[in-house]
Design a protein around this nucleic acid. Structure first.
Lengths: 86, 86
DNA sequence: AAATATTTGTACGTATGTATG
DNA sequence: GCATACATACGTACAAATATT
């Protein structure tokens, strides 16, 4: 159970950490689409806006890119990085 | 620099005064939408809830009307008033 | 072409917790 | 204790872009 509601870390940061871990572990291939915000919200049992806030951090880090109407995608560079380290 | 954090007036009252001034100065046309709460929060560098509290005063005064999910709009009457005084 | 579904984007509404004066 | 202010989180509604049927 990844998310700790009693923890000190805000949920959206925990979400960001989880997703970052998954990306860096290569669980999402180069340019692949992440699950939709609604799917992630259902999976982690948090509000969709909390997911968005977490993903926003990853976008700022350059790990992800969002495309309106399409989804959120793993940045190519990041995919290359995790492939290299794998 | 409109907002004075050292002043005696609470921030939300200062915000209300600023917005009221802008409306009465005709800077927002009849029925026009104000900047979103988030935009105002960024502009004045205060929390969104502080903006909300300030706008709430204007709504009580009849200067503005809020529409859930759409925004805050200048009341038509008020627009007429400021047009008259202009 | 049209209608529908999916997905991200935006905006207000509400509640709780924390900190400060 | 109370008012002010901020951070977090969820709720709800609708718009815009895209994809599908």
């Amino acid at each position: 159970m990844p998310i700790d509601r009693e923890g000190k870390l805000p949920l959206y940061r925990q979400i960001a950490n989880e997703l970052r871990r998954d990306i860096e572990a290569g669980r999402y291939a180069a340019g692949r689409r992440l699950p939709s915000e609604n799917e992630l919200a259902a999976y982690y049992e948090v509000n969709r806006l909390t997911i968005r806030k977490g993903i926003c951090l990853l976008v700022e880090e350059g790990l992800c890119e969002k495309v309106p109407g399409r989804g959120t995608f793993v940045s190519e560079q990041q995919a290359a990085l995790s492939a290299r380290s794998a």
